[in-house]
């Protein structure tokens, strides 16, 4: 019994720690329902002054809309185009992840399973990029994208973000494909499968774990990407992603604390839901990458 009590107390303690851990998010959500005056004078309560917990009772339902300052959301949505930012972020992230996946998978497959003239040179060049001090590459990148005629477009933004060499993923794929048994190809050849078919039908389905890891890692990274979208959407406000949109919203409306909170809530709720829904894949993916 005593042991059980200790166990419960330890669990409660851990629960308190995790609640503190996520409190900044709770704070942001609750702030988005307040007024600027309340925010400036520093209020720590969960509800805005105008609302009571009893407003949430079903028979008081009308009060909630009135007392919870939903107008903050309306303003943020209209003023700051958060629907557009969300959409841009989805398009941007999905495109980048797909491009990176395809490229790294193909490169890793060839490097891991075949020998051909020039292989060592290519391998060395790829690994070297991890160690060469890069300088400030965003400027030439910017020029290159403009020279290609896709500056200030979504494709330019996607290319800028997905270009570059993803050494880690390539090595992951190469190591994984190298570890697959040699007999697989032999069997494929017996059946008369060509190079492409062997890759698509035999090898690719086996690579699911690495694909999942790469997908998750690149997804988190791209969704949170800030620098390249900041620079590449600098003259196309309509192409901004959530992070950059939020940033420029605050630049232009920094006195609007509740608008900020509403905007931030709009920005992080979707990714939180995606994460909570698929969290097993997230965690397994990350763990898979570090194990490999």
């Amino acid at each position: 019994m005593n042991k059980r009590m200790i166990k419960i107390i330890l669990h409660l303690l851990f629960l308190v720690i995790t609640l503190i851990w996520v409190y900044p998010l709770i704070w942001t959500i609750t702030s988005s329902f307040k007024t600027n005056r309340e925010m400036f004078s520093g209020s720590t309560s969960l509800l805005p002054n105008s609302a009571n917990w009893s407003d949430f009772l079903p028979w008081n339902w009308g009060n909630v809309i009135e007392n919870m300052n939903f107008s903050n959301y309306v303003n943020a949505w209209e003023l700051a185009n958060f629907s557009g930012y969300f959409f841009n972020t989805v398009v941007f992230t999905v495109s980048v992840v797909l491009i990176v996946l395809v490229l790294c998978c193909m490169t890793g497959y060839v490097l891991g399973r075949y020998t051909f003239p020039g292989k060592t040179v290519i391998m060395a060049a790829i690994v070297a990029t991890m160690f060469i001090p890069a300088g400030y590459t965003i400027i030439p990148l910017w020029q290159l994208i403009n020279a290609l005629g896709i500056g200030g477009s979504m494709s330019g933004l996607v290319l800028a973000e997905s270009g570059g060499t993803h050494v880690l993923y390539i090595l992951l794929f190469a190591a994984y494909f190298r570890g697959l048994p040699k007999e697989l190809e032999e069997a494929g050849k017996m059946d008369g499968a060509g190079f492409m078919r062997t890759f698509l039908i035999i090898m690719l389905p086996l690579a699911k774990p690495v694909i999942a890891s790469t997908f998750i890692l690149q997804f988190i990274q791209t969704w949170n990407s800030f620098f390249i979208p900041l620079v590449f959407t600098i003259h196309r406000p309509d192409l901004r992603t959530l992070g950059v949109g939020m940033y420029s919203f605050v630049e232009d409306n920094s006195a609007d604390l509740v608008g900020m909170a509403a905007g931030a809530t709009i920005s992080f709720i979707p990714i939180l839901l995606v994460f909570l829904f698929f969290q097993r894949y997230f965690v397994d993916g990350v763990a898979g990458a570090v194990k490999g």
């Binding site: 600027n36 005056r37 400036f40 004078s41 630049e251 920094s254 006195a255």
Partner: peptide, 14 residues
């Protein structure tokens, strides 16, 4: 405070 923060602070009677 940057200019806008400051203006918000002043306008909110802080």
């Amino acid at each position: 405070q940057e200019l806008l923060d400051y203006q918000g602070l002043w306008a909110n009677k802080q």
